[in-house]
């Protein structure tokens, strides 16, 4: 029963959707503070390459090395996001241009590729892999076993992150300040909230989460580094934030939808249904375009729109 197509698709969809979910949760925080960061793909690649490097060169027990590797990936991506924060918050540069530059700078033909060459990471299998956990020994329970009780640790961590972000944004004082900074920075400033500090903090956390998402590719999915290994997941993460109307639960659900689509081709092919592989390769991106079209023309726009100050630099003198 647990080998059935639908159950396996959902389980694999959660697996493939998780890195996009984590990166999108990070982008959600940055955008909630009013900073659009189009550099997600580049930050994910930096996280992926650095996490893999650390996992290869640090020795120790499997679990500990993986934790250090994920944290290193997060730190590397946060460092890249610092460039964006400085450009857009301190220098008030155009956020779109700076974000795009970040993806090119750190991306598949940029810094991440250089780091991979420098450390000779290509073509080597990883020494540490994050395997699925058999939670409470329940992995063979019908239906829920493979879906919920047999995933790698980062999947469960992503659920905790999503809930924490929901709680933080909606139920805490700092969350209220964050929303104020994203919706109406003048008002927040007048309340005594430091717009600059909030924006820096959330762009950096967003970068770190993009790095964690990236590390999922090299520590969990593939356990190997190749240039551009995220193959567009960062762009999908950006679309996810919009699709989810800037809400964490929506990000998780949307990411799993993309995950299912990513897993569809291989699962159908293994069951004797052959469609052109190009169709399946293109599906996540087709879905991205469809989602953006629906959301932008949509019914929920008025109620669930973007943070009002998204993309707008803030200067106290109104400059």
């Amino acid at each position: 029963m647990n080998r059935g197509l639908v159950i396996q698709l959902i389980a694999t969809g959660i697996f493939y959707g998780t890195p996009m979910a984590i990166a999108a949760l990070g982008e959600l925080l940055a955008e909630r503070s009013g900073v659009l960061n189009l550099g997600v793909e580049g930050m994910m690649l930096m996280g992926a390459v650095v996490a893999f490097w650390v996992s290869r060169d640090v020795s120790g027990p499997n679990g500990l090395v993986l934790i250090i590797a994920v944290l290193a990936g997060a730190a590397a991506a946060a460092a890249v996001s610092l460039i964006h924060a400085f450009m857009t918050i301190t220098l008030r540069a155009n956020q779109v241009v700076s974000g795009l530059a970040l993806t090119i700078f750190a991306g598949a033909t940029g810094l991440s590729s250089y780091v991979g060459d420098l450390a000779n990471l290509g073509g080597n299998p990883g020494r540490h892999i994050m395997n699925a956990i058999n939670v409470f020994g329940l992995k063979d329970v019908p239906i829920l076993g493979p879906i919920i009780f047999n995933q790698p640790a980062l999947v469960y961590i992503s659920w905790v992150i999503a809930f924490a972000i929901y709680w933080y944004v909606n139920k805490t004082r700092q969350g209220l300040h964050l929303r104020a900074v994203g919706e109406n920075p003048e008002a927040a400033d007048a309340m005594g909230v430091s717009v600059t500090r909030y924006r820096y903090a959330h762009v950096l956390i967003g970068g770190a989460l993009a790095g964690v998402g990236g590390s999922f590719y090299t520590l969990v999915i593939s356990s190997e580094w190749t240039d551009g290994i995220t193959s567009g997941a960062g762009w999908i993460a950006l679309a996810l934030v919009i699709l989810a109307f800037w809400r964490p639960a929506g990000v998780i659900a949307g990411a799993y939808l993309f995950g299912v689509v990513s897993a569809l081709g291989a699962n159908l092919s293994a069951r004797g249904v052959q469609l052109p592989p190009e169709v399946f390769s293109a599906l996540p991106y087709v879905l991205t375009i469809a989602v953006l079209a629906i959301v932008s023309s949509g019914w929920g726009r008025g109620r669930f729109g973007a943070p009002a100050a998204l993309g707008v630099p803030y200067a106290r003198d109104g400059g």
């Binding site: 080998r3 593939s222 190749t226 193959s231 081709g265 293994a270 592989p277």
Partner: peptide
């Protein structure tokens, strides 16, 4: 079970195919 990836080099595509085969039994 037989599956074709139409790709030689991509590790992640080959791994995706492996997961598909194992999922299918």
């Amino acid at each position: 079970r037989f599956t074709c990836t139409n790709n030689w080099d991509s590790v992640s595509i080959a791994q995706n195919a492996a997961r598909g085969l194992i999922n299918a039994g």
